[in-house]
Simulated scan of single mutants.
Amino acid sequence: MLILLPPSEGKAAGGDGGPVNVTALAAPKLAPVRKRVLTAVTRTARGDAAVAAEALKLPPAVADEALAANRAAATSPTLPALDRYTGVVYAALDPATLSPVGRAAAEESVLVFSGLFGVVAGGDRVPAYRVPVASVLPELGALTPVWRAALREVLPVLVGKGFAVDLRSTDYAGMWAPTGPLRHQVLPVRLLTKRPSGPPRVVSYPSKHGKGLLARELVERAGKGAAAGSVDDVGEAAAALGWDVEVRYAQGSVPALDVIMPPWVPVS
């Protein structure tokens, strides 16, 4: 089982590992592209700050810190990806409190899509950086087509004959789309929120939070020897969290899963 996740823009600082080794990350065949992207990012970050911030789609409030991290990305200390990413998805996944078997399953089964590295496994060591896949770099152009071309052959090998739960956001789903038989092996899952009126819909924060909780449930089950291998298994995991599930079918009887969560009540 694989769980496909987006990265988070928020990342923990520091690290206790040496500089990133792009060949040691998941899918080592991506190393040449990773080196090109990493070089282009660091050069961009070392240039004119305004040009770099625009190219990397950096909000003004975080631009200085993000550019500093990107300038040092090739040489700065590393952390496991599960510990590096700190956004809403990963806060809900809460890797620090996973059981030992759940953590081991997460390190192997979580596959994070990344604007800087293409894909990394949960246990792969990565530096602090901020490189949205929507970035358009002076040396390389738009990153999405760069990674789409590179991942076209790599992802089918990673998925193999197994099963994957796709919890990516739209930008990162654009990096790779399963084709042929893989469409039956990669299950897209939407996290929807009930509303007082009208049908459930995707609401950004609760959807991200729900993805993290569902990923946590799936890796804990995998750690106990019950890795998801079908839409029914994922539906069972969602139902265990108290959520409703609905299966949809696209052309060719390809399944997709809608997970419907209770109305979101913001914490004051």
Rank of each mutant, 00 (worst) to 15 (best):
R148Y: 00
K161E: 15
T44L: 06
L182M: 14
L192Q: 07
A226E: 13
V186R: 00
A53P: 04
A222V: 11
Q251M: 13
P262E: 12
Y85N: 03
A74F: 12
E246A: 15
P188T: 03
G242H: 11
G122L: 03
A96S: 14
V189W: 02
D171N: 14
P77D: 12
L58F: 04
S99N: 06
T78N: 04
A74E: 11
L241H: 11
S135V: 00
A50Y: 08
L79E: 10
V119L: 04
V265D: 15
R183W: 10
V245S: 12
S268I: 12
L5A: 06
R152M: 07
L67N: 01
V186T: 06
W176C: 08
E108V: 14
D258S: 11
G252M: 12
V157S: 10
K57T: 13
R103P: 03
I3G: 00
V254I: 15
S8V: 07
R43F: 04
L67P: 03
G180Q: 07
V119Y: 02
V234R: 05
G223K: 06
G160W: 11
Y172C: 14
G115S: 03
A121C: 09
P138A: 04
L257P: 01
A121H: 03
V165Q: 05
S207P: 02
V119P: 00
A173V: 10
L116D: 00
V136P: 00
V37K: 00
P145Q: 07
R221T: 06
A63K: 01
G15E: 08
K11A: 09
A81M: 08
T86F: 07
A238M: 08
P77A: 11
